[in-house]
Design a protein around this nucleic acid. Structure first.
Length: 1191
RNA sequence: GCGGAUGUGGCGUAAUUGGUAGCCGCACCAGACUUAGGAUCUGGCGCCGUGAGGCGUGGGGGUUCGAGUCCCUCCAUCCGCACCA
């Protein structure tokens, strides 16, 4: 064989490797293990493009390198084969997603095998295979049967929780559980029904059913996890997502928030991806502070009960009876003045008053009414304090205008105090009591009781806020609740109700996206309610606003406009007071510019620094019982249900509304057949279509399936033991392989796969099934390979240009251009001969000429009008001019273009495009080489281009180029198959590595691939003579040759060890170049070089290895060690600089003492010249580096 | 706005971590061999300058005998997060 025939060589060895199971991994425990894994690919219909193999090649290099270094390497590949695209395709075509998936996988495997990866295909897994998802379901069951014990700080089997419930109820349990978990005693637990117990346990399980606001995507017909939503639209497909309250399976990942955060420190991951996870977990340390609601909305002065009094009073009252009403609705002093009137009125009621009183007294309407009760300065007829409802019965006097005015003010005031006032006339009560009572009943019904709404200190309700800056609490001038906050409807005063409700309505209906896009605008509504700042005892208004998110913290914030930007904007907008609390902010236009410093205006915190003040304030709050230290996480529990077919069925059935796990022996719960991959008519998920699909033929199965990330959250474990039918992974194998040593994949999984995998891994670890707390020890995120699009520039034929062109002919004939009679513009007019020429496109002339003519007749009577089409001008301008000439000379002429003209399909080369009006069009990059267009191929590319013509530069058509995402629509996708076809897999592998650092994003540009291909041919020639005969010498190597080899070994090995994949390629090139220069064909040099290169170029090295006489695969060769002794030098060519500037080089023996070096350097001619007669101040000699002479 | 990363010839990049900036490859230029070249080989190739030399690692400043590398500052690009309390 003379030439390097890569196609034959590569096919030959790929076959050999497969037939001889060269890459099969055995559990050989005498060797150290090394587990190198690629991120699970989803087999999409588009197949691989050159960007995908980048990471696979790097991991393959490592796998091969580690094998040669004596490691037992696990390097598997498989497919994350459940997912939306195959199902979308199924919906459109009716083809079962399993078929689509199988086809896609087949294609992927062909492409992968074509590149010569050393995967152990015997370990391949597919998540959609029942033999695999059996264990996904099994793990789901483990999660269902687990709870998170915060005392032990780990997950435990639910049995331990039940045992505790039976012993002590849940009073002493510290667990990750739902917010609304009630407390109960052991006694109560024992008396709970099965359903009640199930409901309680669901609040603790690591996977649970709950009503939660989820991301509902109507277009996909399913809910999505938070990480699947980007900027308010679905990550896949970009469909809108809305908030919807649904009962869904959830994963209690929040239980692990702290450990997921802390253990990041133990991982060798890039800082950026750790940061992404930290952000997502979103830990913030601060405090929760309780704000009591005021008993009444306070007006200034007025003698109302002061805030501090009210708190004391409330505390006293609360000690006695938890729900005692605050019936004293005026001050004692006022009551002194009013009580006589009140008593009088009671004794002498009007007839109407009496009738009504008899009807409503004694809780006749289920609520207690008081009559002639004093409220502030007024005595009202009847009042129901629980509902804050006042009923007035008006006599004749109320018809007078003055009295009506007074009533109005009185009502307003009472409204202001939070009371509803309804009025009846005497006659209404006397004549139609039924109707009156009916109305009262209705109002009572529609008004929440204070027992429920807890307005003010009358019941023990508080608003809790979360803050990281409790030190600024003296600067709190308002509270803001999220519109969705549960207290909003309860605390809103009647007068504010319409406005508040309208705002809430609007906020809830607005999509996430809308709310996000209006970040900068300020909006909000006052609720009418007030709270007491527990530090200052001052009342502060309670507002609601969009900028407070229901899902974060407590859904309420304390507004500190002097140190928070959003609060500042809010306060400015609504004119709320701003109290500076940090020294130096008093006179600032915007006090939030300075956020840290000494406290001012802050009572006992004055003078403290931010951190000290935070500590002291928390301490104070805890001591006084209205606050506590609190750590908050942004991380939410993950929605685990999908209303989809193509996913793992959830191994759960329902009996009387209680979810039960199916028996473990019934696993796997296999996906049933269904007729259509759509929801049922009643809106149930597709699985609702399965016929007779019931557990044990009786019980309904869960109809949701698991999300795409379920199967990929544990797959690395399955590779350790992929065919085990008894366990998801055997203990021994798990103990041996432990976790992934090197994980290579994209950074885009930072908040999804990489977080869920860590979560499941930790659960399995806590439950004792596996031995590593983290799944992926080291990770490298390969940069995306971007597409490099090429463009051609199609010449546009516009009227403006046609006009210009025609003008060249017509102006010399005496035409004027752009004549403006009336509101028209005529293209060309010959005034003397009364001829007008109009340019329009061919189609417009055809369709509209009559309209034009009538217009011309209006402005230019008795003028000859003729039309010239744009098409005509560019294809046959002479003909057009001829027609015009005829018209001028009075001959008979043709008014319209005689023929239909077709414009040439003209493209102009990149650097000439500025002289034309052009549009840039994507051209298939496969038709372009080094930005030069293959014109023939271009004409054949699409039928409409067959007649394409070109304006060339220097005989070539140069394309423009731009870096974009690699995608079909941009015609910039490069298929690795094509590259392999043309240059071979080894060249592709080398080139992808050579392109630059693995982590970097870079455009794919085939331009440089020649270089790596040439390198391989050069390597080939080292082993062959000029005639192409294999020719390797057994001669002893020279010192120079050994030096080249060992230098290469050293550099390549060091580079691979630090995962620098591009630099070894250069080193190999240098090595081969140098050996070529020396005409070295010695076996003792070339043989180790092959082993060194084999991880990068496995095919050519395998071929040459066998040509050298080996009968075993190069994969079993040992990696060469480098020997320092071959790199020893006796002299060094020192760079000599004078004052830091390089002036010359001097070869100096390395064993020479520094003083001698100095002498040699200073006596050097060139150094002398630069010294300019001065003496050297200092000579710095860095051995084997540099000499610097300082003058 | 906050956080992270990056910035070096026409292009992809390299620089043993403070010691000769531009290795290797592409493109380009010149030449050789050839009927031919999308083969192969040789030489050149940061910028200015005929030259000596000067200038050069996004800009400015600093530390140092010496800075692409360390410090300060500004700018640009990319990525992530974002009313997160």
């Amino acid at each position: 064989m003379a030439e390097y025939h890569f196609r034959e060589i590569e096919a030959k060895w790929q076959k050999y490797w497969a037939e001889n199971n060269i890459y099969q991994t055995k559990e050989n425990t005498s060797k150290p293990k090394y587990y190198v894994l690629d991120m699970f690919p989803y087999p999409s219909g588009a197949g691989l493009h050159v960007g995908h193999p980048l990471g696979y090649i790097a991991s393959d290099v490592i796998a091969r390198y580690k094998r040669a270094k004596g490691f037992n390497v696990l390097h598997p590949m498989g497919f994350d084969s459940f997912g939306l695209p195959a199902e979308q395709y199924a919906i459109q075509t009716g083809q079962h997603p399993a078929i689509t998936t199988a086809e896609n996988i087949k294609r992927y495997k062909e492409q992968l095998k074509n590149i010569g990866f050393s995967y152990d295909w015997s370990r391949e897994v597919q998540t959609s295979d029942p033999a695999y998802y059996k264990w996904t379901q099994w793990i789901f069951m483990r999660l269902f049967e687990a709870w998170y014990n915060q005392k032990a700080n780990k997950a435990e089997h639910i049995h331990t929780l039940i045992a505790e419930f039976e012993k002590n109820g849940n009073l002493q349990v510290e667990a990750a559980c739902d917010e609304d978990t009630p407390t109960f005693t052991a006694e109560e637990w024992k008396n709970f029904s099965e359903k009640q117990r199930s409901d309680i346990l669901l609040k603790y399980r690591l996977t649970y059913l709950a009503n939660a606001y989820v991301n509902w995507c109507p277009a996909l017909g399913t809910v999505l996890a938070n990480d699947e939503v980007k900027d308010g639209v679905s990550e896949r497909g970009g469909y809108p997502v809305e908030r919807k309250l649904m009962r869904q399976w959830m994963m209690r990942i929040t239980a692990y928030a702290e450990r997921l955060l802390q253990d990041l420190e133990t991982l060798d991951w890039s800082e950026s991806i750790k940061e992404v996870q930290r952000n997502w977990i979103g830990k913030s340390m601060g405090a929760e502070v309780c704000f009591y609601l005021t008993p009444n909305p306070l007006s200034k002065g007025e003698g109302a009960i002061t805030a501090s009094q009210s708190i004391e009073k409330e505390n006293i009252e609360n000690k006695n009876t938890k729900h005692s009403f605050h019936w004293q609705t005026t001050s004692p002093e006022k009551w002194e003045k009013l009580k006589e009137f009140a008593r009088n009125n009671r004794k002498n009621p009007t007839n109407a008053e009496n009738i009504l009183w008899q009807a409503i007294r004694n809780r006749n309407l289920d609520v207690k009414f008081r009559r002639q009760h004093a409220i502030e300065n007024f005595i009202v007829d009847f009042v129901c304090l629980e509902k804050k409802l006042i009923i007035e019965v008006d006599g004749a006097v109320h018809f007078e205008k003055e009295q009506q005015e007074f009533d109005k003010i009185r009502t307003e005031y009472l409204n202001y105090l939070g009371y509803q006032v309804i009025r009846f006339t005497n006659s209404e009560v006397e004549n139609d009591l039924e109707k009156v009572l009916e109305k009262i009943k209705r109002v009572i019904q529609n008004t929440p009781s204070l027992l429920e709404r807890g307005l003010g200190g009358e019941v023990n309700k508080t608003i809790t806020v979360f803050t990281t800056r409790i030190d600024t609490i003296f600067g709190v001038t308002f509270l803001v609740l999220a519109p969705e906050h549960e207290l909003v409807s309860e605390i809103t005063t009647p007068d504010r109700k319409p406005e508040v409700e309208a705002y809430v309505e609007k906020a809830i209906n607005r999509s996430e996206r809308e709310r996000m896009s209006e970040v900068k605008s300020v909006s909000g509504v006052f609720t009418g309610a007030y709270a007491i700042n527990p530090f200052t005892k001052e009342p502060i208004p309670i507002w609601i606003s969009d900028y407070v998110l229901a899902g974060y913290g407590t859904g309420a914030v304390m507004g500190v406009p002097s140190s928070d930007d959003r609060d500042f904007r809010f306060a400015k907008f609504f004119g709320l007071p701003i109290v500076p609390v940090i020294e130096g902010t008093e006179h600032l236009e915007n006090p939030t510019e300075k956020k840290y410093g000494k406290m001012i205006n802050s009572g006992f915190l004055n003078g403290l620094d931010t951190q000290e003040a935070i500590e002291k304030a928390i301490q104070y709050a805890e001591e006084n019982g209205f606050g506590k230290r609190k750590i908050n996480y942004k991380l939410r529990d993950a929605v685990f249900s999908r209303q989809r077919y193509w996913g793992e069925p959830v191994p759960v059935y329902f009996k009387e509304g209680v979810p039960y796990l199916i028996d473990e022996n019934d696993l796997p719960l296999v996906l049933p057949k269904i007729d259509k991959y759509l929801p049922t008519e009643t809106g149930e998920p597709p699985l609702g279509r399965a016929e007779n699909w019931k557990y044990k033929g009786i019980y309904d199965y869960e109809l949701n399936t698991m999300p795409g990330w379920a199967g990929s959250s544990w797959y690395w474990l399955r590779y350790m033991d992929p065919h085990n039918g008894k366990e998801f992974v055997s203990k021994e194998k798990e103990q041996y392989w432990k976790n992934v040593d090197l994980y290579i994949g994209g950074a885009e999984h930072g908040t999804g796969h990489l977080l869920y995998s860590r979560f499941w891994n930790k659960v399995l670890y806590d439950l004792g099934y596996i031995s590593s707390p983290e799944p992926f020890q080291k990770m490298i995120n390969q940069g995306m390979i971007q597409g490099r699009s090429n463009f051609v520039y199609k010449v546009l034929y516009k009227e403006a240009q046609a006009h210009k062109r025609l003008a060249e002919y017509l102006l010399p004939l005496g035409f004027e251009a752009n004549v403006l009679p009336g509101d028209m513009q005529l293209d060309f007019v010959h005034k003397e001969k009364k001829v007008a020429v109009e340019i329009r496109s061919q189609s417009i002339i055809k369709e509209n000429w009559q309209n034009y003519l009538s217009k011309y007749a209006e402005f230019m009577p008795d003028c000859q009008v003729m039309f010239v089409s744009v098409e005509e001008i560019f294809t046959n301008v002479e003909e057009a001019v001829l027609r015009v000439r005829k018209a001028l000379s009075g001959e008979e002429f043709v008014q319209f273009p005689e023929n239909d003209y077709e414009l040439p399909n003209l493209f102009v080369s990149y650097n000439l495009r500025d002289s034309y009006e052009t549009v840039a069009l994507h051209v298939d990059v496969n038709l372009v080489e080094n930005d030069v267009l293959d014109i023939d191929a271009f004409r054949k590319w699409r039928p409409d281009l067959a007649n394409a013509e070109f304006i060339l530069e220097e005989g070539k058509y140069i394309c423009g180029a731009e870096v974009e995402k690699m995608s079909k629509s941009k015609y910039n996708v490069v298929n690795p198959d094509n590259v392999v076809e043309r240059y071979g897999a080894d060249t592709l592998r080398l080139y992808e590595m050579f392109l630059g650092p693995l982590e970097q994003f870079k455009p794919w540009n085939t331009n440089g691939i020649e270089g790596t291909h040439k390198f391989l041919r050069k390597l080939w020639r080292l082993f062959h003579d000029e005639k192409g005969n294999f020719n390797v010498s057994e001669q002893e190597p020279t010192q120079a040759e050994l030096k080249i080899l060992h230098h290469t070994i050293k550099r390549v090995t060091e580079d691979i060890e630090r995962f620098s994949f591009n630099t070894p390629v250069s080193t190999f090139m240098i090595c081969v170049n140098e050996l070529t220069d020396l005409k070295c064909n010695k076996k003792s040099i070339l043989e180790p070089l092959l082993v060194l290169l084999a991880p990068y170029a496995p095919h050519i090295t395998e071929e040459l290895w066998h040509l050298l006489g080996h009968t075993e695969s190069i994969n079993f060769a040992t990696y060469p060690d480098y020997d320092e002794k071959h790199l020893q030098e006796s002299t060094f060519n020192y760079p000599i600089s004078v004052n830091g500037k390089l002036r010359t080089n001097i070869e100096i023996a390395l064993d020479l003492p520094q003083a001698d070096i100095e002498k040699i350097v200073l006596s050097n001619e060139i150094v002398q010249k630069w010294l300019e007669g001065k003496s050297a101040k200092k000579v710095i000699i860095v051995p084997k580096k540099i000499v610097n002479v300082v003058v």
